[in-house]
Amino acid sequence: MSLAQQTNPHVVLMDLRMPELDGAAATAQLTLTVPGSRVLVLTVYDSDMDILKAIEAGAVGHLLKDTPHNELFAAVRAVARGERRLASSVAEKLMHRSMDQPADLLTARELQVLSLVADGLSNKKVASKLLIGEPTVKAHLVRVFDKLGVKGRTAAVMAALERGLLRH
């Protein structure tokens, strides 16, 4: 992470399975500490959970490692321009999933985080309770704020209660 902070890369190619920190957690941490960087996941895994974790963590693209070189290079350039890139198999999985739920619906993990915030827990305590990193909690909250169109924790809880997303 310190190398990324020193070099401030435009695009980071991220694997999902790494020895110390998984790719989704590393992506969440990177997007918080080096906000101008865009993460393109390049992995052999295309399971729904792997894809969603990476996208929810802030990745703007997800390609499989068997992607032809010319398509990979084009994707890196596109992501550098601010576009999103997904392997066709990944896009199809996300399309099927999104047809099952409204676009503004919070993910299960986002609801867990928001529910604990509604209970008065700090980001550190939420992270400890859910066995995730504090940067990941912050990343989830940023997405919750965006989806609910609010600017803070209290407003997010209130909006979720009003919409029936939380029961307290």
Rank of each mutant, 00 (worst) to 15 (best):
L116C: 09
V41D: 06
V117N: 04
T67H: 07
I51G: 11
S115E: 08
L86K: 12
L114V: 03
E56W: 10
S47M: 01
A127Y: 01
L106H: 08
A57S: 13
A103W: 03
N123T: 13
T43Y: 06
L116D: 12
V44E: 06
Q112K: 07
L42K: 13
Y45S: 06
V76R: 01
D46I: 02
K53T: 03
V76S: 00
K93D: 06
V117P: 08
A127M: 00
S88R: 15
A75E: 10
N70L: 13
A59C: 02
V117S: 09
R81D: 12
H62K: 14
D104M: 04
A127S: 04
E92Q: 06
D104K: 05
V76K: 01
R85W: 04
R81C: 05
H96D: 14
P68N: 01
A57Y: 05
Y45H: 13
P68L: 00
R84Y: 15
E83T: 04
R97T: 09
A75D: 05
G120P: 04
A54V: 11
V126F: 01
L94D: 09
A54I: 06
E92G: 03
R81T: 05
E92T: 08
K93S: 07
L106P: 10
G61V: 00
G61Y: 01
D66G: 02
F73W: 06
R97C: 03
V44Q: 06
V60Y: 01
N70S: 14
A108D: 15
K93E: 08
R85H: 09
V79L: 04
A80R: 12
M99C: 03
P102L: 05
D50L: 00
S115N: 12
S89Y: 00
L40A: 05
P102N: 11
S115F: 00
H69T: 15
D100G: 12
A80S: 11
D50N: 14
D119I: 00
A108H: 14
H69A: 12
A74N: 10
M99D: 07
D104W: 00
A54H: 09
E71I: 09
A59R: 03
S98I: 02
